[in-house]
């Protein structure tokens, strides 16, 4: 894809979003609101149904069973998969 000079000038790398990302990821997540990619239903994370076990936490939509949030710890890493969520919103300081 061709990019205009202007666009390249305006584009920054991921570091430039570091502040917003830190704000988004360092909050209490159980009160976050997610929209299920399977059925569009909105739910507070705490209301999702937890499945899984020692391999990881699979949080499913109570309406359609879509895996909305998947988290696993593998040794010294955490893996997060949000493919089952259209979006996720948290409260932020104004």
């Amino acid at each position: 894809m061709e990019r205009s000079g202007n666009e390249t000038d305006r584009r920054l790398d991921g570091n430039a979003a570091g502040g917003l990302l830190a704000e988004a990821f360092c909050v209490e997540m159980t009160t976050a609101v997610v929209v299920c990619a399977g059925c569009g239903a909105e739910a507070v994370v705490a209301e999702l149904l937890r499945y899984g076990h020692e391999m990881g936490a699979i949080l499913r939509c109570a309406g359609c069973d879509t895996a909305v949030v998947r988290i696993a710890r593998t040794g010294d890493r955490l893996w997060l998969d949000l493919r089952g969520a259209v979006n996720l919103r948290v409260s932020a300081a104004p």
Binding site: Y51, G52, H53, G56, I58, R60, D65, A67
Partner: peptide, 14 residues
């Protein structure tokens, strides 16, 4: 690994 005589149930969904 350790040996078990049970058959633990691990499920990622209903």
């Amino acid at each position: 690994q350790y040996l078990t005589r049970d058959f633990p149930v691990l499920s990622a969904g209903p």
